[in-house]
Design a protein around this nucleic acid. Structure first.
Lengths: 246, 246
DNA sequence: GATTGACAAAGAATGTACGATCTGGAAGTT
DNA sequence: AACTTCCAGATCGTACATTCTTTGTCAATC
């Protein structure tokens, strides 16, 4: 017999999930009046890439960016290196940085990975969900349905809360981080267009289906439901990107 | 219950990778991964972290690193930012960088993700594999068996070729990149100890099993085989890490 | 006397400026 | 027309200034 993965997992003490990263510093904003919007230079660059404000494969010159951002070159260089590590820009020695194209392929690739990861995360959640968790999810879902996409920004926030509740306590922080990053990218793209009526209905329906599976503690069905949800979301985004292209 | 190996495998049976949409498979744009000399400052830092030469959560001071590397602070800063983007260091504003601990948890997290991704990649390969591909794999496997772990370095290289042949042509570059990075990390850790006899036998056996599935064009069985392979590899590494700890 | 608070100084991260080096292309020569 | 030379532009490396954190000391208070 082989060593099942379960033995590894159980052998390791299930640890507290230290969420050190992602803490947006809420430092005293007293002097930061109408400066540069408060967002870091890294975030501005990343958003520009994700939202397509810079063309694919376009060259990113540090001096130009520095003057536009109102800083010197060094912060720009470091932001670019970070983006390089995350795969948003491609750097070649002595030749600078180019933006990695955020196209349909990119979105498809991300969604396909999520179709693999999210069901696994969901499976685990089904096993540890408490009654309070389910109730909280139903409350969020009720809010979502009440809102009914009248405010896309608020909906996105609620939807994030909904899924975060399921994934946030998972022991595999690496997988959750991956999900967060992928979700940020997809969310930034989605914000560029409005959700179609059909997709609105489907989203609510898929959430309902997922909730039913959770209440039945049906692991397999829940995994299938979330896979459908992710897949549908990805298809919706890709279609909008294609439509926008022409 | 935690997600055991079996549940993961059963989850794999239902879904092919391309559930999103069938975008024509564009040519894999395998361009970068530019090695700048081999011993860049970024690589040195990364290897130090992966190999555990710097302790977990240890503080990384730019000035100290700069003097040790024989350069000024700026290249170190940029290397740290890149590592931050890849998740190897954790940076907090005005407080510098700390190394992310590469412990059993980290390895387990990576392996669990690979247990999800690699079967999906393998499934696709089963569909596109030519006779020449199979023959090349068998040739590599024969070399591996002939070598029989007498040279761990060579074995690692052959094993990499074996799996790369299966994954390299996949259309989902993002998933393949993830695999490459995870494999680099695991490979760097594995290089610290010698493979146990039992694991040696298992590796060869699992490769053989995989080859049989490929020749039968049995997609599901191939996915199960590769999941077992990854899972076993992860368990082996984790056990060695724990043994070494004391 | 022990604890706590303020305050100053050292240490370290972040930002700015400038020089060195490399690339790409245009002008000039054979 | 092809090769060479040279220069503008951009990246990369070094040095320094600024700002924040940390720490250590001293005095005031309980």
């Amino acid at each position: 017999m082989f060593c099942s993965w379960k033995t590894i997992v159980s052998a390791l003490k299930s640890k507290p999930m230290s969420t050190i990263t992602n803490i947006r510093q809420a430092v005293p904003d007293r002097d930061d009046l109408a400066e540069d919007g408060g967002s870091s230079i890294y975030e501005r660059l990343r958003d520009d890439i994700i939202h397509g404000r810079v063309k694919a494969n376009e060259r990113l010159k540090v001096a130009e960016l520095a003057s536009r951002m109102g800083t010197s070159t060094n912060p720009v260089r470091e932001a670019l290196q970070q983006l390089r590590g995350e795969g948003f820009v491609i750097m070649t020695p002595n030749r600078g940085a180019r933006v990695r194209p955020i196209d349909e392929e990119f979105v498809r690739d991300i969604c396909e990975i999520e179709v693999l990861i999210e069901p696994a995360l969901t499976r685990w959640f089904v096993g540890i969900a408490t009654k309070a968790d389910i109730e909280e999810l139903e409350r969020l879902q009720a809010e979502i349905e009440a809102l009914n996409f009248s405010d896309e920004m608020k909906h996105s926030n609620l939807d994030l809360q909904f899924h975060r509740l399921m994934y946030d306590r998972h022991y595999n922080r690496h997988a959750v981080d991956l999900w967060v990053r992928h979700r940020q990218i997809l969310g930034a793209i989605s914000r560029q267009f409005t959700t179609s009526i059909k997709r609105q209905r489907d989203v609510i329906e898929e959430h309902k289906e997922l909730l039913l599976c959770l209440k039945r503690h049906d692991v397999d069905a829940a995994a299938v439901a979330i896979a459908k949800h992710v897949s549908g979301s990805g298809a919706h985004i890709v279609e909008h990107m294609r439509a926008r292209r022409y």
